[in-house]
Amino acid sequence: MAKPMTKTQLVAALAEEMGSDKKSAAAALDAVTSIITREVAGGGAVTLPDVGKIYCRERPARMVRNPATGEQIHKEADKVVKMTISKKLKDSVNG
């Protein structure tokens, strides 16, 4: 598996794709990240066209097992961030 793209590499690629400077690209990336974070934290969802949908899901309280001791403990309800990948992206990776 290839190494993940760093933020610096992503900003550089975004600047090249947009035909602008890295400062503008970094500001655009930070703005998109901020919007996604705010929307998902508020219980909403964000769809990135041709990429996927990012959303928050609530997990109910449940009993879990400590793997070290085997002891059953109660875990409170919590929220997790999920992402569903679009069919177009899946097909481009597999095609």
Rank of each mutant, 00 (worst) to 15 (best):
T8D: 08
M1E: 09
T6G: 08
S24D: 14
G52H: 07
C56D: 08
R59C: 14
R59V: 12
K82C: 06
N66P: 05
A28P: 10
A45V: 01
D21Q: 06
V64W: 04
R59S: 15
G43T: 09
A27S: 12
T8E: 12
D50F: 05
K90E: 09
M1S: 12
T37N: 08
E39L: 00
T37H: 05
K87A: 13
A41H: 02
G43V: 05
K23R: 14
Y55R: 10
T8S: 15
S24V: 10
K3T: 13
L10Q: 08
S92R: 15
P49K: 10
A77K: 09
S20T: 15
P67R: 10
V40L: 03
D30K: 02
I35N: 00
V93E: 01
K88P: 03
K53C: 05
L10V: 08
D30A: 12
E58T: 14
A2Y: 12
D21E: 10
S20Y: 10
G42Q: 08
G44H: 03
K53W: 03
P49G: 01
L14P: 03
K88H: 09
A25K: 01
Q9Y: 09
V80R: 10
V11Y: 02
I73A: 07
T33A: 13
A68H: 11
A12P: 01
V93S: 02
A27D: 13
G44N: 09
K82I: 02
S20W: 09
S34N: 11
M18A: 15
D91I: 10
I54K: 01
T8N: 11
K87P: 05
T37C: 06
D50Y: 07
G42I: 02
G19R: 06
R57G: 12
I54Q: 02
M18F: 14
P60E: 15
E39P: 00
D30V: 00
G42P: 04
A12T: 11
T33Q: 11
V46N: 02
I85W: 05
M63D: 11
L89V: 05
T84H: 10
K87R: 14
P60D: 13
A68D: 04
G70R: 00
S92K: 15
L89P: 03
C56A: 15
I73K: 09
L48H: 03
K22C: 07
K53R: 15
L29D: 00
P4D: 06
V11C: 07
L89C: 11
K22G: 04
K7T: 11
V81L: 03
A25C: 06
E71G: 02
L14E: 05
A13W: 07
K79F: 13
S92Q: 14
N66E: 08
S24K: 12
V93T: 00
A61T: 01
G95T: 05
L10P: 02
K53N: 11
P49E: 04
V93M: 03
A61L: 00
E76R: 11
Y55M: 13
